[in-house]
Design a protein around this nucleic acid. Structure first.
Lengths: 193, 193
DNA sequence: GTCTATACCAGGATAGAC
DNA sequence: GTCTATCCTGGTATAGAC
């Protein structure tokens, strides 16, 4: 059974990933968990602190998932394909966007600490992806460029998948969002490597 | 001299592109233009209608700029490079994100009409970019995939540029955001074509 | 077309009892 | 650690005068 703090983080993350930083509130979490707003404030005194905790956990979990990809993969290409799969999984879970991707979109309205945490997350990702391209045999300068483009394409693919996601009006149409992410990733790897 | 409605749109667009849909209000626009909130409601009765007008104008202007790129370019590669330049220009103007890109991030908190307008914008872009890749000699299926990846990379590059933008703390550091967009675009064109 | 005044609700946060 | 009650602010929107 998850602790209250963890259940709050779970709810807040799901909300943030589909509605953005300014699109969710303590009241939303309160309604989802059948807990009052002051109880949430007890665990996370301010929304900024909640968001920072959200990013810290997200970043750690992402690092763990990356490591699992590393352990399972035999070569650099497989590592990168597995990494892209993590993004596809994010979308598959309720049409979510990368937590730091949504936050980056609202950057100018973020508390400073949250913005810094977002920047740190992307630095972390850039480093990992660049190392993978380096392992794949690309020269250092090109590996950095490829990493930037690969990351941008994955974040952008999530954005496009979101934009094209079915509305209530045409819910009958199959959601192609996950395919968008995977096909963009495949295109990137086919051309970059 | 621009009409009041246009000045409202200018202000709202600038705010939306850096703060997101839920990050700006009639009060913000009111403060910027020295006009009262009810006056804004007179021109745009609801925020949803304001946002739809914003997207309609943005989409038209983007189409005009694309056409100018078309007229100036001699080949498909130049067309696509010029198109990418439009995205770099967006960021250059105050570290803005693509209007529809920010809106897509907050998709689940958008009024239905706004969400549809965002989706239509991206369909429009996808068509134009795919046509350019087709002109460049790519087979139809690959042109669609390349267009999707190219668009995703451009939107994602804006997102990453935003995330890495200097905060108040390190404003002395030169802002590399525009370079991010242009270098990602160059990487994409070098590899896709 | 712009204003003053105002209604109404929601968001973030606190005090203090249990 | 959770609750009730409450505060203040700001966001969206309307009525009605000028």
């Amino acid at each position: 059974m998850a602790s209250t703090a963890e259940r709050i983080l779970d709810s807040a993350q799901a909300l943030a990933q589909v509605r953005g930083y300014n699109g969710f509130s303590y009241a939303d979490i309160s309604a989802e968990l059948a807990i009052t707003k002051p109880s949430i404030h007890h665990h996370f005194p301010s929304k900024a602190q909640l968001a920072e905790a959200l990013i810290a956990r997200y970043r750690e979990r992402f690092a763990v998932a990356r490591q699992e990809v590393d352990d399972a993969a035999t070569g650099a290409r497989e590592r990168l394909a597995g990494y892209a799969g993590l993004y596809a999984q994010v979308f598959a879970e309720g049409g979510r966007m990368c937590l730091c991707g949504v936050f980056a979109a609202d950057a100018a309205s973020l508390p400073p600490g949250v913005r810094r945490a977002v920047a740190a997350f992307f630095d972390d990702q850039r480093r990992w992806v660049a190392a993978a391209f380096l392992e794949a045999g690309l020269p250092a300068a090109r590996a950095r460029g490829a990493a930037q483009a690969f990351l941008a394409a994955l974040e952008g693919a999530l954005l496009l998948a979101r934009a094209g996601a079915p509305t209530v009006d045409d819910a009958a149409v199959a959601d192609p969002g996950e395919d968008v992410v995977l096909s963009v990733a495949a295109t990137m790897l086919d051309t970059l490597l």
